[in-house]
Computed example of a mutant assay.
Amino acid sequence: MSEPSTNDKPRHPFDVYEAYRRIMVDEEISPPLAAILTLTELMENSTGESTPMAANLFVSFLVLVAGTMFELVKALNDGAEVLKARSSNPISLNAGCELFIAFVTLFPHDSVSFTDLKAKLVRQGQQYAAEALAYRKKIAELAVGFIKDGSLILTHSYSRVVMQTLLLAHERKRISVFVTEARPRGLGIKTAEALTAAGIPTTVILDSAVAYVMEKVDFVLVGSEAVVESGGLINAVGSNQMAIIAKAANKPFYALAESYKFHRLFPLSQYDLPNHNSRIFSFPRPKSSPLTGSKQVPTSPSSSDPPEETSSSGVAPVTITQEQISQNNPDVDYTRPDLISLVFSDVGSLTPEGVSQYLVGMFAG
């Protein structure tokens, strides 16, 4: 029996989403960087054959076939679509995908062969991700210059770059921090625990107490999921109302964002965000309607079922869980650029208008 030829060997599919999840295990790597590293792996695993590529957005497997630049860019776009389809909050990772695909598209094609070009792109992607891990330190150094000794700071949820900035400020100055609970994810508790462990005076406040404490604080400092083309901010839900209150109280509202979170997106309202869906703030259908007079038909309980508790009116009490509340609420919201004082980034301290100008230049090559 003859040996199978090289062309008959099966192509091993690459699980894009599983690679992304594996990379995200490292807490130092944010979603945009994880997306860049995932697409770099995808490119590294692509073959040199020039036949059609198959992608399944449901199981996230890609048969990687890229023998030309056109096919390679198509493979990267398909991989990005898989990541967006599988993620509940694709905004931040999409910024990384967009940046990397633009880089690949604009990269000078002066290599001797396509294989050589692809190898260069893989090295460049890995090198960029490694260098980008230092961006937080650069931002922290920049932002600390705006923090005066004795400052009382209000922050929201949990952000790696905000944490690094506050810890650096604590080494050089006296600061105190109010941090919100940040429902529904409750990540403000994580921030408070880390700051308290570092010796920073920290108090957790209710999300509903932001207006109450705003008169006491010197400024607001938040992280970001993405900074969009208008200069507006997408961040953990609650950031928008915090910015509105800060503006009314004439307090600076500062955002910290690595440049790989700059995103060519132009939302006009909360409902333009890519992760908005009909489930958010929806009203559940009642089991019975007093308007139509329809009633729930009782079912005969089995002998093993415990008796259902009822109120004095004979109606079973309604229980609303934290999980139900979380599912019916957004994870992020959009803050308009006119509410933001400055955006501190690895490319400098920018006004919202400056972010727009930088984005135009970044994607123009």
Rank of each mutant, 00 (worst) to 15 (best):
I245S: 07
I245E: 05
I245K: 02
I245V: 15
I245D: 02
A246N: 06
A246I: 04
A246D: 14
A246E: 11
A246P: 08
A246F: 03
K247M: 06
K247W: 07
K247D: 11
K247V: 01
A248T: 00
A248C: 02
A248R: 15
A248G: 13
A249P: 03
A249Y: 12
N250C: 07
N250Q: 10
N250W: 02
K251Y: 00
K251R: 00
K251I: 09
P252I: 06
P252K: 07
P252L: 12
P252A: 07
P252E: 01
F253A: 09
F253P: 09
F253K: 02
F253E: 04
Y254F: 15
Y254V: 11
Y254I: 15
A255M: 07
A255K: 02
A255T: 14
A255Q: 01
A255H: 03
A255V: 15
L256E: 10
L256V: 06
L256F: 12
L256A: 11
L256H: 01
A257I: 05
A257R: 12
A257Q: 10
A257C: 14
A257M: 02
A257P: 09
A257Y: 11
E258D: 13
E258A: 09
E258K: 09
S259H: 14
S259R: 04
S259G: 04
S259T: 15
Y260L: 11
Y260K: 00
Y260W: 15
Y260I: 07
K261L: 04
K261Y: 04
K261C: 06
K261A: 00
K261W: 00
F262T: 08
F262V: 10
F262I: 10
F262D: 02
F262R: 10
F262W: 13
F262Y: 11
F262N: 04
F262M: 02
H263W: 13
H263L: 13
H263V: 00
H263G: 06
L265W: 04
L265R: 08
L265S: 11
L265Y: 00
L265T: 03
F266Y: 12
F266M: 07
F266D: 08
P267E: 11
P267G: 08
P267R: 10
P267H: 06
P267D: 13
P267S: 08
S269W: 00
S269D: 12
S269I: 05
S269T: 13
S269P: 08
Q270N: 13
Q270A: 06
Q270V: 05
Y271V: 07
D272A: 14
L273W: 04
L273V: 03
L273C: 05
L273A: 09
L273Y: 09
L273F: 07
L273I: 01
P274I: 08
P274T: 03
P274L: 10
P274W: 02
